[in-house]
Design a protein around this nucleic acid. Structure first.
Lengths: 244, 244
DNA sequence: GTGGCACATCTAGTATGGCAGTGCGTACAA
DNA sequence: TTGTACGCACTGCCATACTAGATGTGCCAC
């Protein structure tokens, strides 16, 4: 686990993270890792108890997560982990692809051997990974670094906020449908194309790399249909818990 | 039975807007329209009094605006309207351009005469505008409609959240540096290119249209430097009292 | 046995009070 | 005159109390 990622926009270095940030990170982790599956109830009161905080920071964290699309707040009813909406995933993928592909032009233009060495380091670390848990942060780091080289570091925030649903699908996808080694190989080919200055090749490599998420998505949807919002038909509630 | 159709993220049609949404819209309007200029102090207490609400919805609105980059919350110090950061505006422009340009492909592919008629209606309304206040929502409507035709309606949220700084610059830009008529003419040329199925032309039209914001930006920065974050030099603080 | 209404009990939304950190004005010392 | 220490007043952060609305449950009339 990286203690401090480079380029972090967090002023946490001097200021301890607020309870809201703590709650946000914690809850987001629960959702992305699948510990709280899509459809699960996330009660403000319950979370406040579990995290040993008051409702206010928990509530504000849920507000941000709802903005991101990971949580579905239904007033006076409850807050739920949002179901994975295939259409929304596809659109998130579109956004990500649009931004990352467009950034490659500047990335190739600004490429230097020093930057190449930095990226090589990430690639080497990826090759040493054996579990998705290890690979996942490195994958983020790789893509984020490329954006940073292009001078579009700020765009990462936009990508990240859009790819909430993508993250979950990706996490599940890394769990077996496509191997870590294949993802790592994609990254290396992309790096080679950038380093050799062939923009078109790089764009094609990145495009197919990013689109594999969609293939994974189909696989996951077939295997775990209960995690997905049904495209047609109500299915408002999967089952009657019949509490009490 | 599902009373509300899934797919539309806004339940506002059936539910009255919450105080938080009211506060958000109101404060955002203040900032984008320039009523509260960059650097102005936005006190939770003060806003709560002015909007006749409690501090909670105001605070949550400020949280969302901070996430969007329009407000700069400094803990235990105050919340301020963020200064316009030229680099951030450029990156927001990049994001927007990447998404809208990429969406044109699907837009051209899915174009129909019926959709053309709808867009024509917007164009006609734009031609009838005489003030930026009238034009501004129609401009949003135009671009959003194109995204919707491409089937990337969801991407609008990403664009919007990224273009906070852009909005302000754009609003100022509409106030004189480039005329409404020129913007409207851009839109019409873009429409014609899409309708005739020439993707490349459409992309070029849109690209130059969107990049005019950057030209405006330079004009505005020259005219009103106090609204901008200084690009070079420390200026961390005017002076260091170095108490204690 | 069935349909409908009322209540008990959840929920999130909102209001408010206390707390802790920071900047700035002021007064004092060199 | 200049530099420094100190305290007040202000800020946002967090906790708690209260409100209104939605839902499941069970009683009761039929």
């Amino acid at each position: 686990m990286a203690p401090s990622l480079p380029g972090e926009p967090t002023p946490s270095a001097v200021r301890p993270p607020s309870n809201r940030e703590l709650a946000y990170e914690h809850i987001r982790e629960l959702i992305v890792r699948g510990d709280e599956p899509p459809g699960a109830l996330l009660s403000e009161n319950d979370l406040a108890l579990r995290l040993d905080l008051s409702r206010t920071p928990v509530r504000e964290a849920l507000l941000l997560l709802a903005q991101e699309g990971l949580v579905d707040v239904r007033p006076q009813r409850g807050s739920y982990v949002s179901l994975i909406d295939p259409d929304m995933v596809r659109q998130a993928q579109f956004i990500r692809e649009a931004i990352e592909i467009a950034s490659l032009e500047a990335c190739v233009a600004k490429w230097t051997p020093e930057l190449g060495a930095e990226v090589e380091g990430i690639l080497a670390a990826q090759d040493a990974c054996s579990t998705p848990e290890e690979f996942y942060p490195l994958d983020e780091h790789f893509h984020r670094t490329l954006l940073g080289i292009a001078g579009h570091d700020f765009a990462w925030a936009a990508v990240q906020s859009a790819k909430g649903h993508l993250d979950r699908a990706r996490y599940l996808g890394l769990s077996g449908y496509r191997s870590i080694a294949e993802y790592a190989a994609d990254h290396r080919r992309l790096h080679d194309a950038i380093a050799s200055g062939s923009l078109d090749t790089a764009q094609e490599e990145l495009r197919s790399h990013l689109r594999f998420v969609l293939d994974d998505l189909d696989q996951i949807q077939t295997a775990r249909p209960e995690l997905f919002r049904v495209p047609r038909g109500p299915e408002r509630r999967p089952a009657r818990p019949a509490r009490r």
